[in-house]
């Protein structure tokens, strides 16, 4: 994850409390989604950014995962995301995201 974004995530977690935050991702592939999810839960796996070694344990989802999709107004989801859902490998994204949440999320 971009270093500046890591810094902002850390600041917001400090300011609002990690339990009040949900991170929503839009990554193009499962692996990239998994890396971003790991960064905001267990720390930056690339050891480059401000979240290196910081275990925030934030709740994190990809916008195409059913948990999030089900809470979004259907018409808006259809207008904003639905066509891209055909392009992305949503199953792969779910397979990458689920174990990371199970292992590292502290607030679910």
């Amino acid at each position: 994850m971009d270093l500046e974004n890591q810094k902002r995530v850390k600041e917001f977690a400090d300011k609002y409390g990690a339990e009040n935050i949900v991170v929503v991702l839009g990554a193009a592939e499962g692996e990239a989604a998994g890396l971003a999810a790991e960064t905001v839960t267990n720390g930056d796996p690339t050891f480059a950014g401000p979240l290196t070694g910081v275990q925030l344990g934030l709740s994190v989802f990809h916008v195409c995962e059913p948990e999030i999709k089900d809470e979004i107004d259907e018409a808006v989801y259809d207008e904003q995301i639905s066509m891209m859902e055909m392009v992305l490998d949503v199953d792969d994204i779910i397979n990458e995201m689920t174990p990371i949440r199970e292992d590292y999320c502290k607030y679910l």
């Binding site: 935050i21 929503v24 990554a27």
Partner: peptide
Amino acid sequence: KKVIIIGD
């Protein structure tokens, strides 16, 4: 909730 979005 307070949401942080990391789009691509």
